[in-house]
């Protein structure tokens, strides 16, 4: 039981990071971006390349594990570089595709994002192949936090704890950005009323670029987290897309807090349902929870009441 909760928190962290980007682009650009999962995949693969680059530059080519973790400091640097590259990728996609369609309706943008997702997925397969990749082959010793006879016991790897901890730090940082900085206030203002935002002096195109950067960078970090705790595959992001949407909708699309809470609910629901329905159906439980919550609160947990 405890073990499933811990696993759910790890998966939930990844989903929360991805869902936040989804909800941000939805509230500012007003469309559901089906390419969000691909930013995770690209982030994970970019980190494979940037890690190789960092290792090559710093000499040696081997990564000495950092303390109890399976990876060294080089992966942290590689992750930040991958986040930056993924942000640039998002800006390029926006510039090539979405920017031209902004005056049209939301359906056009959604379909375009389907296309972009497909192209990005194929491109990653073409560039990196389909075999799973890993940042590190180090075997990690899980730490026993709770003995086996108490609620089934709990063993967590340091990597998993880092994922949960870093996610919380990132979410607090995002919350600070949105509520305490001019950029954050401009983003919330634009989400509320783009025309008034322009009248007040907000450069809405600048806000849109910032939104892509933040959403894609968080997605890339989520992708690296998947790579650290599981493995890196071309379908990494696609397989997470439905949980991302479930989390964002469940929390109330447009609400950052909702996306975070939704992410953890979906992660926990998937994980806790495994002993009940078996691993094959874990994805379905996210939807059972989603439908249940929407029946009670049609606009999601933190959604604006219509």
């Amino acid at each position: 039981m405890l073990q499933l909760v811990a696993d759910g928190l790890v998966v939930g962290s990844v989903i929360a990071l991805g869902a936040v980007g989804l909800t941000l682009t939805y509230s500012i650009l007003r469309f559901a971006n089906f390419g969000q999962g691909e930013f995770m995949t690209w982030g994970a693969y970019f980190a494979v390349s940037t890690l190789a680059f960092v290792l090559a530059v710093t000499g040696g080519g081997v990564m000495e594990p950092l303390g109890p973790f399976s990876f060294g400091w080089q992966l942290i640097v590689a992750m930040l570089l991958a986040a930056a590259l993924t942000a640039i990728l998002a800006l390029v996609v926006d510039w090539l595709l979405f920017r031209r369609l902004r005056r049209g309706n939301a359906i056009t943008l959604v379909i375009a994002s389907f296309g972009a997702a497909l192209a990005l997925r194929n491109l990653v397969q073409f560039l990196y192949g389909t075999l799973p990749e890993y940042y590190s082959r180090e075997i990690q010793i899980a730490i026993r936090l709770v003995p086996r006879d108490v609620m089934g016991g709990l063993r967590v790897t340091p990597d998993q704890m880092l994922v949960i901890g870093l996610t919380l730090v990132l979410m607090l940082a995002l919350q600070w950005l949105l509520t305490r900085t001019t950029l954050g206030r401009a983003m919330r203002a634009t989400a509320m009323n783009p025309a008034l935002a322009r009248v007040a002096g907000v450069d809405v195109e600048g806000v849109i670029r910032a939104t892509w950067v933040i959403g894609a960078a968080l997605a890339a970090i989520a992708g690296v987290f998947v790579g650290i705790t599981l493995q890196i595959r071309p379908m990494l992001g696609f397989d997470l897309l439905l949980p991302l949407f479930a989390a964002a909708i469940l929390g109330g699309i447009g609400s950052v807090r909702g996306a975070v809470v939704g992410g953890y609910i979906v992660g926990l629901a998937e994980s806790l349902s495994v002993p009940l329905v078996g691993a094959e159906y874990r994805a379905a439980t996210a939807f059972a929870v989603l439908i249940g919550i929407l029946l009670l609160r049609p606009n999601g947990l933190f959604g604006a009441r219509a």
Binding site: T182, R185, R188, A189, M192, N193, L196, A197, A200, V202
Partner: peptide, 18 residues
């Protein structure tokens, strides 16, 4: 004509900072 989701102070802070 106001940002309904921002506080009174935030409405003014934003306009001022821009």
């Amino acid at each position: 004509n106001v940002f309904a989701n921002l506080s009174v102070l935030e409405n003014l802070q934003l306009a001022s900072a821009l």
